[in-house]
């Protein structure tokens, strides 16, 4: 079984992102970047399937600027076999990402496409679903457990109110939820080995996909700063304020 994993480079989840003062977007100059945590989980799942002898090859694809090779290299150090960077210096919207991935699928003919359920920067949660629709493949989103048997996947999905288990025929698109797998550290020896693994670079034009944005961002602003708390003199006053000001009683 051949697996393609789509992995996006996003702002490091541990840092606080600030909005640009003109409200045109987040301030990404000299901000630390990292692999989208949900995509990291997808890479881990793919590598485990390879280690279990189920997958034969894991190809990781990233669409982004030149620096996104670091995201690919991290995936290679985790155990993926080769990387593909589709170079795009401006943000690419989910539909264009799905179209590019469809073109990659046409060339690579994988049995499974794995990716994170959403990227933590724009929280779109669309790419996996759109890709499945464009390919006409089955989809299993928000996966917390994946098992492979007889050319099909049993996928446990985290849905509102509980867990749902579905069966999906291969080929399919699966998006990873938080509890699917705990991603491993890229170990130092594997980082050195990953240096020797191939990364191919392409452009959206190579796949004849138009990545011009269709959406207009009107404004990006930071959430309001938290107000300082107040001290109350008596329990009675506390109840009163909870009732009249906070409106919770």
């Amino acid at each position: 079984m051949k697996i393609i994993v789509a992995a996006k480079m996003v702002t490091d989840p541990n840092i606080k992102v600030r909005a640009l003062s003109d409200g045109s977007g987040p301030d990404l100059a000299s901000v630390k970047m990292a692999m989208n945590p949900f995509d990291e989980i997808a890479v881990e799942e793919a590598v485990r399937l390879k280690e279990a002898g189920i997958a034969t090859e894991v190809v990781v694809v990233s669409i982004g600027p030149a620096k996104a090779t670091e995201t690919l290299r991290t995936a290679l150090a985790m155990g993926a076999d080769r990387g593909l960077l589709i170079r795009a210096d401006q943000p690419v919207e989910p539909l264009a990402v799905a179209k590019l991935l469809k073109a990659v699928v046409a060339k690579e003919s994988p049995d499974l496409v794995l990716t994170g359920k959403q990227a933590i920067d724009d929280d779109s949660n669309q790419t996996g679903q759109m890709l499945a629709a464009l390919l006409g493949w089955g989809q299993a989103t928000f996966a917390s457990k994946v098992t492979v048997a007889d050319g099909a996947l049993q996928v446990t999905r985290e849905v509102d109110g509980g867990l749902q288990t579905i069966s999906v025929r291969l080929p399919a698109v699966v998006t990873a939820d938080l509890r699917l797998k705990e991603p491993r550290y890229a170990s130092l020896p594997n980082i050195m080995k990953a240096k020797k693994k191939p990364i191919t670079e392409k452009t959206p034009e190579d796949y004849a996909v138009n990545v011009a944005p269709r959406l207009t961002v009107i404004r990006v602003e930071e959430p309001p700063a938290r107000q300082a708390g107040i001290k109350v003199a008596t329990v009675q006053e506390l109840f009163q304020r909870l009732h009249s000001e906070a409106g919770v009683l």
């Binding site: 990292a34 090779t69 670091e70 290299r73 991290t74 150090a77 550290y185 890229a186 170990s187 130092l188 980082i191 050195m192 990953a194 240096k195």
Partner: peptide
């Protein structure tokens, strides 16, 4: 280098 940055990241996560 790229691998030096990745190594530092791995060490930092472990720490």
């Amino acid at each position: 280098s790229e691998e030096q940055r990745l190594m530092r990241e791995s060490c930092r996560s472990y720490i």
